[in-house]
Design a protein around this nucleic acid. Structure first.
Lengths: 104, 104
DNA sequence: AAAATGCGAAACCGAAAGGTTGCATTTATA
DNA sequence: TATAAATGCAACCTTTCGGTTTCGCATTTT
């Protein structure tokens, strides 16, 4: 299926799942209670998130606990880096402008 | 069509367009030269990026220059904030561990 | 041992995505 | 003024997406 991390976070349900898992590891059933779709639909989302290595599984008896793989989230931040440079520069320019006005 | 910014950056071509525009404003034709798809396909991507307010248009004669709307990119960073707190905490824990080992 | 629970996988479906071709419109040029 | 260039839009097609229902398989509970 070859999905990447950006496709993974494109879906609002998956983003919400990631936020849930940021707080604590959860089972598919527990996660599904937070949404209006079926457990199976959530399961599909978890499969995608697992493939992208955004979440981990740990089986305990018949339950599977999913937890956030925080390191993978950094990849988004790394992509953003190239734009951060720009908005920081823009901020500095504004900063400079304000300072100039102030000293008039 | 109601797309959000996360859907906008889900497509690799659109991400590449954003990177191109980060360097300089460009026309659809110029942008399309960088990809294997038709100008019309690129035009569709630009339409989506415009709807999401990730890019601006400026018409000059018969040409339209597209430029990056950097402020909108910050929204992704803002969403990431909630996860950053986690990975910074993890880093600090590791940091502490390393310090402990060092002082042994 | 039988029933219930937790889960994933498969089959199916409608909607949306991403691409192409063909056109209409506006602006520049010969 | 006729032609070329730059662009957006619409129609169409194939693939993917996200959902549901049905099922099978472990594991736990009664």
């Amino acid at each position: 299926m070859r999905r990447d991390i950006f496709q993974a976070i494109a879906d609002p349900t998956r983003r919400a799942i990631l936020v849930l898992l940021a707080a604590q590891a959860m089972t598919p059933n527990a996660i599904a209670e937070n949404f209006n779709s079926t457990r199976q639909a959530v399961s599909k989302h978890l499969r995608i998130l697992t493939e992208c290595e955004l979440v981990n599984q740990e089986q305990i008896g018949r339950e599977i606990y999913y937890s956030l793989e925080i390191d993978k989230m950094k990849e988004i931040d790394e992509w953003l880096e190239q734009f951060k440079k720009i908005w920081e520069t823009k901020f500095n320019q504004l900063d400079h402008l304000l300072a100039t006005i102030k000293n008039k």
